[in-house]
Design a binder for these strands. Structure first.
Length: 576
RNA sequence: CGAGGUGUAGCGCAGUUUGGUAGCGCGUUUGGUUCGGGACCAAAAGGUCGCAGGUUCAAAUCCUGUCACCUCGACCA
């Protein structure tokens, strides 16, 4: 029998400092989490109960598609990561350290290597495929910037699954099973509104992946949604499609533009539309610091991930130095041809006459025509998709940009790890092949925080009954009166006998204090036992989300509540 | 890593400008009165003022260094 008075947690009247978002503030106030260091938290007993329920739902759904649970190590020898090449290719996000004998070690931030290491000794015949394994375990990622309580942390619990296949078709089949299972997991956890968005356009062969997004303004990611056809993609994956007015071909000529450096100033000065300009954005290659000049229609912005993919190398925003030969503010393509890597965004295609920099101070070109004045170029899509843009699927101008929290992702990995780590099997024709992999992740803590973010009021979280720490909270008003305690205890016992999880508040505190604490605990069903009610032979049952409120005769209370809990659970495809 | 900010009781904060006894609210303990939305009265406990060095008769306060945390930008469950 769990009592509030015995809970090893503390709730606070005031919101702790530095809370940016609602879920973080409520989870701190409610004592759900305690910060130990930057992005490192202890979960309270209440939070651990919630986490366990989330994990149970995940386990059930993984098991249901034949995925088998394993446990990989948290600390691994670096040699495993050297095999895949990631020991060197991943930045400081991977925590590296040495053990007592000087051996290089890493803390697992994801477990493709461990999965391949395990599976490669086992699956040496095509007859053993396909198969998939998963674990629910601690990950450590030395994130540069943590935020939002459990939304973004360095140490977190994650379910990660890995599937192995002998063909792309088979991968796609299983991928679809995970895709569906993930939707079931979110629905059962109380956030059915989660959407799957494409996180890669699929241009690069079979490399498909999806991110599961909970749409909310506090989300860290921008998502592109089509209001007409339901197309969804993240910013990197969404192609930027723009329509251009070709205009008239004009003569190339220089114009004096004293002190006019930005597109806004340029357009105001020449009284033109930004869509008629060819803007330069400077980047540098990470390793060599070689400059990359990106030219793009003046009203658009560059998406760096797209640029990286186009160039196939890492880049960072460029710093233009005195001796770089770049005329900041007046950069144009013509004189820089051959001097730097130059990228033309597809948004410039089809415009006959542009305004662009002339690579000398206080001067721009008018009438710039890419093909005539620079030469034939291959256009790349490196622009950020914009609000009101053209949908790549239905072609309508109906794109909207929304914010979202990434609560999971699934990925068709291909052979990257099985090739580098030499995982092979003998196929039916006797040939040796590398299996194809998929991987599938869900962050448990982030999921909990996300649920809190979309399911709370001013007073606390409103936990969906499927993941709530308890099903029912019994509040005994006037716990100093024996009849209240007796009636409460009888009810708690009767409920527990039916398998209902109950937390009982039998503290002799004022009603307001007790209710406030209950609000912070967020238990979905609240039962109030009070002298007033008992006098009339009833107790009060209400839902935390205010969807139900009943006075029930004492004798029928346990059955009524138990039935209500069971109904609510089964509505979410969950059981006691 | 770039920019800004904050470190004082378990939590939230004042005090720092102008150096001079360590403060307030919440919480905690004890006793009493209350009791359907964070009650009231009385008493009490709780601090190396992030850390180190310096200036000074005297430092939370001034100087130097350092660490930690937070917020805003480049990365991701």
């Amino acid at each position: 029998m769990m009592k509030v008075s015995q809970l090893v947690t503390k709730r606070y009247k005031e919101t702790p400092a530095d809370c940016q978002i609602a879920s973080q503030a409520l989870m701190m106030r409610g004592g759900y989490i305690k910060s130990v260091g930057n992005g490192i938290y202890t979960l309270s007993p209440v939070t651990k109960r919630i986490a366990r329920k989330v994990e149970t739902i995940i386990r059930e759904e993984m098991d249901a598609i034949g995925c088998q649970e394993v446990l990989f190590p948290v600390a691994m020898p670096a040699s495993l990561w050297e095999e895949s090449g990631r020991y060197d290719s991943i930045g400081s996000e991977l925590l590296r350290f040495t053990d007592r004998s000087g051996g290089k070690m890493v803390l697992g931030m994801t477990h493709e290597e461990a999965a391949v290491h395990y599976a490669r000794d086992i699956a040496d015949s095509y007859t053993q495929y396909p198969f998939s394994i998963y674990q629910i375990q601690t990950k450590f990622r030395d994130e540069p910037r943590c935020r939002g309580g459990l939304i973004r942390v360095r140490e977190f619990t994650m379910k990660d699954a890995y599937s192995f296949h002998t063909s792309q078709e088979d991968l796609e089949l299983v991928y679809q099973q995970f895709y569906d299972a993930y939707h079931r997991i979110y629905a059962r956890a109380g956030i059915p509104q989660v959407v799957a968005v494409c996180s890669d356009s699929g241009m690069m062969g079979g490399k498909v992946s999806h991110e599961y997004m909970l749409l909310t303004d506090i989300g860290e990611d921008s998502i592109v949604l089509c209001g007409e056809c339901g197309y969804k993609a993240n910013m990197e994956a969404a192609p930027s499609i723009v329509t251009n007015e070709p205009g008239e071909k004009e003569e190339l000529r220089k114009v004096a533009t004293p002190g006019v450096k930005t597109i806004e100033e340029l357009c105001a000065f020449l009284k033109i539309d930004p869509k008629q300009t060819c803007k330069a954005v400077v980047y540098q290659e990470n390793l060599t610091d070689k400059y990359v000049l990106v030219f793009i229609r003046g009203d658009l912005d560059v998406n760096e991930t797209k640029l990286r993919n186009a160039l196939r190398c890492e880049v960072h925003p460029g710093v233009v130095t005195e001796d770089s030969g770049i005329q900041a503010g007046f950069i144009g393509p013509i004189e820089n041809k051959g001097k730097f890597t130059i990228v033309f965004d597809a948004s410039l295609k089809g415009i006959e006459s542009l305004v662009t920099g002339a690579n000398q101070p206080d001067t721009h070109y008018m009438g710039f025509n890419v093909a005539r004045d620079f030469g034939e170029v291959e256009y790349a899509d490196v622009a950020k998709a914009a609000e009101g843009g053209v949908c790549p699927v239905c072609g309508k101008k109906a794109l909207r940009i929304s914010r979202g929290i990434e609560v999971g992702n699934i990925f068709q990995l291909g052979k990257k790890y099985t090739e580098t780590m030499n995982m092979t099997y003998v196929d039916s024709d006797g040939s040796l092949k590398n299996p194809i992999m998929g991987c599938y992740g869900i962050g448990v803590g982030r999921l909990i925080a996300s649920v809190c973010e979309v399911s709370h009021d001013d007073y606390g979280p409103i936990w969906p009954i499927s993941i709530a720490p308890w099903h029912v909270q019994v509040c005994s008003l006037r716990a100093d009166q024996a009849e209240v305690i007796e009636a409460s205890e009888a009810l708690v016992k009767a409920l527990e006998a039916q398998g209902i999880e109950v937390i009982w508040d039998d503290r002799p505190v004022s009603a307001g204090f007790m209710f406030s604490d209950a609000d912070l605990l967020g238990v979905p069903v609240r039962v109030v036992v009070s002298p007033k009610g008992l006098k009339g032979g009833t107790i009060e049952v209400s839902a935390r989300d205010k969807s139900m409120q009943e006075r029930v005769p004492v004798a029928e209370a346990a059955d009524f509540i138990a039935q209500y809990v069971k109904d609510q659970l089964s509505a979410m495809n969950c059981r006691l």
